[in-house]
Structures are given as C-alpha cells and as structure tokens.
Amino acid sequence: MAPLLCALLPLWLAASGFIASGLATPALAEQPAQVQCAKALLDVLWTPDELAGTDADRVIGPVGEPDASVPVLNPGVSLAPRPAAPPKALRGAIRRVVPARGRKVAAITFDLCERANNVAGYNNRIINLLREHDAKATFFAGGKWLRSHPEAALQLMADPRFELGNHAWTHGNLGLMTSAEIDSQLRLTEIQHANLRAELVRRATAKGLEAEALRVPHVLRLMRLPYGRSSELALNTLAERGYLVIQWDVDGEGDEELHSAEVLAKRALARVRPGSIILLHANAVPQKTYEILQRLLPALRARGYELATAGELLRLGPPQSVRRGYFTIPGDNLKYDAIFPGKGTLKPDPARPFTTEPVPPAQ
C-alpha cells in the first residue's frame, strides 16, 4: 500500500491546492517571499505588544447556557469551493507519516477547542514561544473559538510558519453525529474562517499588502477529530467534503494532572519517531502545555529533528492511518461519549443543569 500512497498523495495535494497555496512545499525551509510575507503582515498589522498578548488572553470563561448563534457570511464574502475528495487510500485518521530514508522530522500540532457553553481562552505564551524558536506548527481551530478570539486567529492566519485546520464548530463528537450534523460543524467553521480571511485581506490592502494577504489559504483542508473520535460515517463524510484527517501518535498532555511538565515532556520525547504528529493544545484549558513545550522544542532540535506543519509532513512519505481514532491505545477515548453532553458540544457543569438544546444541524 505504501507505494500507492506515495504516488497518490502528491497528485491529490497538487490538485487540491496544497502546493500552490503554500500549505506544503517540497523543502521545509521557508522561501524568501514567505519570510517577507511574515515580516510584512505581522510587523505592519500589529505592534509587538499586540502580538505578544496579555494575561487576559488566558482567562477561561465560565460555563453558561449554550450559545446557539451561528455565523453568516459577511457582505461581499463567499466560500471558496471545497477541495476534491482524497483517494480512498488516504481517507483514514492519519496518526503519523513514514518519511523517506527515516528523515527526522515531526509536526507539532495544537487544538484550539471551544464548546457551545463556554469560552476556552488563548495561551498567548505558547505562540510567543513558537515564534521565539521560529518553529512551525499546525493549529486545529474550532469555529466558535475563531469567533471568540478573532484577533489571535488573524495573527495565526497571517504567520506562514503556522497552518490552520478545522476542529469543528463547537467541538462536536463526530463519532456520534449524523452526516448533516458533521457537515454543520464543518461548514460553520468554514464560514467563520472565510469572514476572518476577508478581514485580514481588508486590513492588509489598506496598508498596501494585499498580495501578501492573498497568499493566506482560502479554505481549510485538514481536519482534527474532536476527542479523536471517528466512525465510518464520519470519515466518509469528511473525505466527501475534501478533508484529510490528521490525528497524532504522540499525546503530549495525557493525564497532565498526574504528572509534572518535565515528566510529560520526557514521555512525549520517548514516543517521538520520524514522521510523528504531536498533540498539544493552545487554548487555556491544559495547564502545563507551555512548560512542556519549553522542554520539547530544544530537546527535539538537539536530537536532530526538523519541525514541519502537518501539511508539509504529508509531502514526505506515506501516512499511517486508522479507522477508529484514539489517544494512546484503541478505545481510550470512548469514555468522552458520556462525559460531554450534546454530542460533545457542551462542557459539563454539575452545579448548572442545561436548559437549552445544542445548536441544531444545518438543513
């Protein structure tokens, strides 16, 4: 199967716009034009203090009633066509890639989760640390998170070291959802992303940087499963919508309440191998991610690892995938089906019973 994957994936990436959009390139080194784009957009549109953020970014909102409001396209904004469905051989939940000749490269990925009934915050210190290390990363953003944190989202979109993927509108458990519900979680996130990209282009154009802003990808092509939960229906629906599903083979924060950041970082490093995809979070919910990342970044480079976005990693070899997603061992995420109500879209709060229904699926 590996030779077939090696043949199919570059063709699909090219046809779907990964190469033309800058989401993936044959080499991991940044091209001069991309570096200039980063300096232009980030340095002109925001001050250093605005990029750095404040402690207020990391405040998590209280659990309340579910927010049933949904985004609509702003005047003059349209959705770009979704990419073509990937070949059948590429429709699983990708846990890692097998790079040619054992090339030591890994992708650090961050989820930006937010459910319907709270605001999850933004760990600005993580993004500052990535920029200090000039480290590439992929962020899988929930649509509601994009709406709650528009300035942070715009800054991530404008930085070509970073790549954005879809993480569902309100963190819906796709393993429990119908095809219509899955499509709603995808489409609402796509609408929010399109509105933000249009705002980025508007600001950049006012500063004479329209060409740089237009390099920001029009569409989201990668998907991260909330809770890592999948089903045959979910994987088929995502493929039909043109998504490649990116999971992970290294959980960097598992059981963080039981271990120190040092122990968690050492455990993650022990599991990293060429082509690994590392799971972390950049919302404010996990408490030790910043300290874990402080140890991971220098340790990976000391071991000779390059860092790539998930899109770049896919160019380097055939992916290894599964049909039933999980964190570390198969079945370890099934417990979340009962813990998070509303098919995963609600944060539980024993002191506050729910009185409204979650957002209904699009018709």
Results as ranks from 00 to 15, higher is better:
residue 252 G to C: 08
residue 357 E to F: 10
residue 253 E to S: 14
residue 276 S to M: 05
residue 78 S to I: 09
residue 128 N to Y: 00
residue 319 P to L: 03
residue 244 L to P: 06
residue 123 N to Q: 15
residue 39 K to S: 15
residue 288 K to C: 06
residue 298 P to E: 10
residue 292 I to L: 11
residue 171 H to C: 03
residue 313 L to R: 01
residue 343 K to L: 14
residue 38 A to V: 12
residue 127 I to H: 10
residue 170 T to R: 11
residue 264 L to S: 05
residue 29 A to Y: 08
residue 329 I to R: 15
residue 30 E to F: 14
residue 251 D to Y: 12
residue 338 A to P: 00
residue 192 Q to F: 06
residue 79 L to T: 03
residue 52 A to W: 00
residue 40 A to Y: 03
residue 124 N to A: 15
residue 212 E to K: 06
residue 358 P to R: 01
residue 36 Q to G: 12
residue 289 T to Y: 10
residue 178 T to C: 09
residue 59 V to T: 13
residue 134 D to R: 15
residue 56 A to Y: 04
residue 56 A to F: 08
residue 125 R to D: 13
residue 346 L to K: 05
residue 85 A to E: 14
residue 41 L to E: 03
residue 329 I to S: 13
residue 338 A to L: 13
residue 46 W to F: 13
residue 298 P to A: 09
residue 289 T to G: 11
residue 290 Y to A: 12
residue 91 R to K: 06
residue 208 G to D: 04
residue 274 P to C: 03
residue 238 L to C: 08
residue 363 Q to A: 15
residue 341 P to Y: 02
residue 95 R to W: 03
residue 25 T to W: 11
residue 168 A to P: 07
residue 130 L to Q: 10
residue 254 G to L: 14
residue 353 P to V: 01
residue 178 T to K: 10
residue 86 P to F: 05
residue 33 A to G: 11
residue 197 R to N: 01
residue 211 A to M: 11
residue 168 A to K: 06
residue 302 A to H: 09
residue 318 P to F: 00
residue 177 M to V: 09
residue 328 T to L: 13
residue 133 H to A: 15
residue 251 D to G: 10
residue 28 L to C: 07
residue 231 S to V: 04
residue 57 D to Q: 06
residue 336 Y to T: 14
residue 272 V to D: 03
residue 158 A to G: 10
residue 301 R to S: 07
residue 341 P to C: 00
residue 18 F to D: 02
residue 258 L to D: 14
residue 226 P to E: 03
residue 302 A to S: 12
residue 203 R to G: 04
residue 160 P to C: 08
residue 35 V to N: 09
residue 6 C to F: 07
residue 146 L to R: 05
residue 4 L to N: 04
residue 241 R to S: 12
residue 349 D to F: 07
residue 353 P to C: 01
residue 197 R to M: 06
residue 68 A to W: 10
residue 345 T to K: 09
residue 158 A to R: 05
residue 129 L to P: 05
residue 192 Q to S: 14
residue 110 F to K: 08
residue 165 G to W: 00
residue 320 Q to C: 12
residue 227 Y to S: 00
residue 218 H to V: 02
residue 211 A to N: 12
residue 174 L to P: 04
residue 121 G to Y: 09
residue 276 S to W: 05
residue 324 R to A: 12
residue 57 D to S: 01
residue 335 K to E: 13
residue 349 D to R: 04
residue 124 N to K: 11
residue 170 T to Y: 01
residue 23 L to I: 11
residue 22 G to R: 06
residue 267 R to V: 02
residue 121 G to N: 10
residue 313 L to T: 00
residue 351 A to T: 15
residue 305 Y to V: 02
residue 178 T to V: 03
residue 89 A to K: 01
residue 21 S to Y: 03
residue 320 Q to H: 12
residue 279 L to M: 09
residue 1 M to F: 12
residue 349 D to A: 15
residue 357 E to A: 15
residue 291 E to T: 04
residue 193 H to Q: 09
residue 185 Q to Y: 08
residue 174 L to D: 02
residue 352 R to Q: 14
residue 32 P to M: 06
residue 209 L to G: 00
residue 11 L to T: 08
residue 210 E to L: 07
residue 352 R to V: 06
residue 9 L to V: 10
residue 176 L to I: 04
residue 111 D to M: 08
residue 188 L to D: 03
residue 132 E to N: 11
residue 27 A to P: 00
residue 95 R to S: 04
residue 191 I to S: 02
residue 294 Q to G: 06
residue 90 L to T: 00
residue 104 K to L: 12
residue 178 T to N: 07
residue 205 T to C: 07
residue 204 A to M: 03
